[in-house]
Simulated scan of single mutants.
Amino acid sequence: MHHVTPPQSDGFSSPPVLQIDTLVHRFGDLVEYTTSIATPRFSRLEVSFGFDCCASFTITIHADRKLEYQVGYTSGSEYYLFNRERGKFQSELDSAQFEQLQQLFQYIKPDKLAKSYAVSWTDAGTAWLTAEYGNGKVVHIKDYGERATWGVSRLYELIARLRTQQRWYSVEHPYDVPVR
């Protein structure tokens, strides 16, 4: 049982409601239980992580398993200040990881998600999720606190891990040695 932002609200203006969850262990973590998966696969999935106004880094996954990683392109990028990493990078996701992300995306039913989520405390990170799927459907979610749902939180975690799990190549300086 936990408090959640009500669907169709704009974050802090609506009081949170108590929600009872039925959870199952799937995708390496706890996620909401669902009986059917009817969502089409994504053709493009993009998540930006940062603080309220500024994304520190963005990871984009394409249907052909190509990955894009952009770091430090917004003003006030805290990630760049601490890590001195900046630029545009690319990689390719292995088929097992890609399939896990596709299945998790389908499992969380993006059509049923609210457009905005927020936690009740301050100084939390923000995730911006954009997904293109099906016949031109697009979902945009702003998630202050990165706690939209159990399944969406797991999706964020798996995507954020790609920063250190992948071997990234610079797009701007293609002859450089890989970043990771």
Rank of each mutant, 00 (worst) to 15 (best):
H3K: 12
S9L: 01
F12K: 12
S13Y: 06
V17G: 08
V17S: 07
H25F: 06
G28Y: 01
D29Q: 01
E32G: 02
Y33Q: 10
T35A: 05
S36K: 04
A38Y: 06
T39G: 10
R41M: 09
R41S: 13
F42M: 00
S43W: 04
L45W: 10
V47C: 08
G50P: 04
F51T: 02
F51E: 10
C53W: 04
F57C: 09
T58R: 14
I59A: 12
T60N: 07
I61N: 02
H62Y: 11
A63H: 07
E68L: 10
Y69I: 13
G72M: 01
T74M: 14
T74E: 12
E78F: 05
E78G: 11
L81D: 14
L81P: 05
R84E: 05
R84N: 13
E85Y: 07
K88G: 09
Q90E: 05
Q90T: 09
L93M: 07
D94K: 11
Q97A: 08
Q97G: 01
Q100A: 06
Q100H: 01
Q103P: 06
Y107S: 02
P110F: 15
D111H: 12
K112L: 11
L113I: 01
L113D: 10
A114T: 10
A118I: 05
V119E: 15
W121D: 08
A124M: 12
T126Q: 11
A127D: 14
A127N: 15
A127L: 09
A131R: 09
Y133A: 01
G136Q: 04
G136H: 15
G136F: 14
V138F: 02
H140Y: 00
I141W: 15
I141L: 14
D143S: 13
A148Y: 09
W150C: 05
V152M: 03
S153I: 00
L155V: 07
L155K: 09
L155W: 00
L158D: 00
I159Q: 02
I159S: 02
R161I: 00
T164P: 00
T164L: 08
T164A: 09
Q165A: 09
Q166C: 12
S170I: 08
E172G: 11
H173A: 10
H173P: 08
H173N: 07
Y175T: 04
V177L: 12
V177G: 05
V179T: 10
